[in-house]
């Protein structure tokens, strides 16, 4: 039985198959409208995440399935102290597939060991969020036509951002990719990402603090938020917080076919004035998230169309 706990659970071929299915769903939605008739998806959200939960729910409804579950731990038996293992064993009696978000790292893995039905990790603390990475990959495929030969700029909090580490890991499996890692020194990419992924695979990367310098070379700009709570010193935060706010002015030197991505929600790191730029694809990215989740649900339920 296949689960989706970590993006590394999937080979490149499997990811390519998911992307191909998602693209077919985009082109032929009617073909998939009843593929999950009679199937139930349980969404076990131990911490609130409206965006991800709605994306999964929309995905299941569009496949013809139904959804049950809870959206915060307080409204479930978890508040009575039930273990993850007992909760998923119970839920597996009612549902065909589980989607879990949990503040503790590894909880979805525990669920996958006990449930007896497929489990999808919808985010476990700061650890993994594989469906965000799948969303990012589908977005890149749709916007750029493929993965090879791209220079990907990742900007903001590269130290704590789980989506960033996961994206680097996933993209590093495709040929001829290079990275420009743009962050304040305090939030630069951790050594282990370089030592375990980039350096062994001989993937070219540059670390810089200047978004302006990097801009002309980028095919993709993946923005993330610089959070106040990550700084030890308020003065450093105030000095840097506006450095990475993307504005139309900053895009003057960008390529005409740049794709601007963001895992959302944004706070102020992308000015709303950028939203109307055709290069801004972060709201299309949200839509792609639903389609890749549909493809994933079909794959884990072993439904072929």
């Amino acid at each position: 039985m296949k689960h989706c706990i970590d993006i590394k659970d999937f080979t490149v071929d499997e990811i390519n198959e998911l992307i191909a299915t998602a693209e077919d769903i985009i082109e032929n939605p009617v073909k998939y409208a009843h593929t999950c008739n009679g199937k139930k998806m349980a969404t076990l959200f131990y911490e609130p995440s409206t965006r991800t939960r709605l994306s999964f729910e929309a995905a299941m409804y569009e496949l013809g399935g139904v959804v049950l579950g809870f959206s915060e731990a307080a409204s479930s038996s978890v508040s009575k102290g039930e273990s993850v293992a007992d909760t998923v064993r119970t839920v597996a009696c009612y549902a065909d597939i589980i989607v879990m978000r949990h503040p503790k790292e590894g909880a979805p893995l525990v669920a996958s060991m006990k449930a007896g039905i497929p489990v999808i990790n919808a985010g476990d603390g700061g650890h993994n969020h594989p469906t965000q990475t799948l969303t990012d990959l589908l977005t890149i495929k749709r916007e750029k036509g493929g993965f090879s030969g791209l220079t990907i700029g990742i900007c903001g909090d590269l130290k704590f951002g789980r989506t960033v580490h996961s994206l680097i890991n996933a993209m590093s499996r495709y040929p001829d990719v290079s990275f420009v890692l743009i962050s304040p020194e305090e939030l630069c990419i951790p050594d282990y990402v370089k030592e375990e992924t980039l350096i062994p695979k001989n993937i070219p990367f540059i670390e810089t603090t200047s978004l302006d310098d990097a801009m002309p070379y980028l095919d993709i700009l993946y923005m993330t938020r610089v959070q106040r709570e990550r700084f030890f010193n308020e003065a450093d935060y105030l000095r840097l917080k506006d450095t990475y706010i993307l504005t139309p002015d900053k895009l003057k030197n960008a390529k005409p076919d740049l794709s601007i991505m963001h895992p959302l929600p944004r706070v102020n790191e992308i000015s709303v004035a950028v939203d109307d730029d055709p290069r801004a694809c972060y709201f299309r990215q949200v839509r792609y998230g639903k389609f890749i989740r549909m493809a994933l649900i079909l794959r884990l339920l072993e439904i072929s169309v």
Partner: peptide, 13 residues
Amino acid sequence: KNPRCITTVEPEL
């Protein structure tokens, strides 16, 4: 030793 690990809150694991 990771305080965010599921094993820290589920002792039977």
